[in-house]
Nucleic acid binder design. Structure first.
Lengths: 224, 224
DNA sequence: AGTCTTCCCTAACAAGTGTTTGGTAGATTA
DNA sequence: TAATCTACCAAACACTTGTTAGGGAAGACT
């Protein structure tokens, strides 16, 4: 929201926009160390998660990092590119975990259990990123820059739907449910946990996964 | 986020702050018709829900309403008071519905079913307000002005926990589950539906409620 | 007829926004 | 020792933000 500078629509080589003119890509500061970047991104992610992306000013991030607003631009192109880097690294690691699960070619029920458990582990590791993803992804998908969010979402949906359909075909999941509703049900129940989950809160990710799976698979009612 | 004007901290009777000095309470425009207010609030709620509160400028709301930004202040004190009115009227109607259910003194399972069904009806009626509530309430509870959000949340939690505990005591709900986890499970699964639910999408609120209840109560696995 | 009331517009304001530019202290390298 | 590089600061910039003040057109009421 904003994007100052840039006068009209097409002309770009005008006056103030000098950018750079040396190395390879866009501008991206001089040569910041990757470790410091990660530190700052972790801080930014926490602030984004707590206050919301739009409500977070670069000055607040800088405050939390013990520096001034302008100094952030030594490490990052823009506030938005911080957000992008946070979300894309999270999604990359998430799919790393998912792919490992999917390559094991388990049965549908075991696949579902493994995916859910893996999801809770990711929530444990990337709590802030997950919270940001949930709150902001809906607006971001409209922007071309965040195309990978849409891609990921579609792959996500396909993965889950396939698993559920396989389960129905193999008679381990009920066949009297709207499968898309079931998908959203499973998906949402898992990820909203990021909004209240705090690491070190007595429950390990695996424990939470076990209980959630127990409820999702068998329900909360007593069997009669 | 902002709050311009108001120079220092305590002095208030300075220069520009004339406010008014006539009727009774704060300032609140002259005498806008309640119907027009409701119209504008509905529009504002849609924009808030779609873009997020902080990302929504008063000019965007005014655009959607076919008027200019300043004109909104004939009807409302501030952008924040629009948000407050949207959320408080939603919560009032929600508790209206809940209280009707609770006063029927049904059994725990029937209470749960009725509460969930009522929740989906509210999502149907106040889709935008629910979406706003979910995204923003976490930041808002910090502000004294939104104290009623905290109150409502606590009453919500108490209502659900009591119902679940009663169910466990009467042996209709499983006793091997962490009841607080079960609470969050039920609560979240219901309300996140607002993020994808669109009225007229083939499913009535009652239908969705039925399917959700079926999953929550009996699980998605086939009974063996 | 005139006065009031309702509802909006025009035009500005002060504060806050993301971002840029130039500089500089301290470590690293030549 | 001088040159270079790293990571930051200080100060500004163009723009956007919520909000206000004054005014005016159209109808309602006296």
């Amino acid at each position: 929201m904003s994007k100052p500078k840039q006068s009209s629509t097409t002309t770009e080589q005008s006056s103030t926009t000098k950018k750079q003119g040396s190395t390879t890509k866009k501008k991206a500061a001089v040569s910041p160390s990757p470790e410091r970047r990660r530190e700052l991104l972790a801080i930014a992610a926490d602030v984004f998660a707590e206050q919301g992306y739009n409500a977070t000013t670069v000055r607040k991030i800088a405050d939390a990092a013990g520096m001034l607003a302008g100094s952030l631009y030594y490490h990052f192109d823009s506030k938005e590119s911080m957000l992008e880097e946070i979300l894309s690294t999270f999604l990359a690691e998430l799919w790393d975990g998912y792919d490992t699960v999917l390559q094991s070619r388990l049965g549908p029920r075991e696949t579902l259990e493994a995916l859910v458990t893996e999801s809770f582990r990711e929530i444990d590791r990337h709590r802030s990123a997950v919270a940001i993803y949930q709150k902001e992804s809906k607006h971001l998908v409209a922007q071309a820059r965040f195309q990978y969010l849409t891609d990921s979402q579609q792959r996500f949906e396909k993965t889950w739907l396939t698993t559920l359909e396989r389960g129905v075909a193999e008679r381990v999941f009920r066949d009297d449910l709207d499968i898309r509703l079931a998908y959203r049900f499973v998906r949402d129940t898992v990820w909203v946990a990021a909004s209240w989950y705090r690491p070190g809160g007595g429950h390990s990710p695996e424990e939470i996964a076990r209980q959630y799976l127990s409820m999702v698979l068998d329900g909360i009612a007593v069997r009669t």
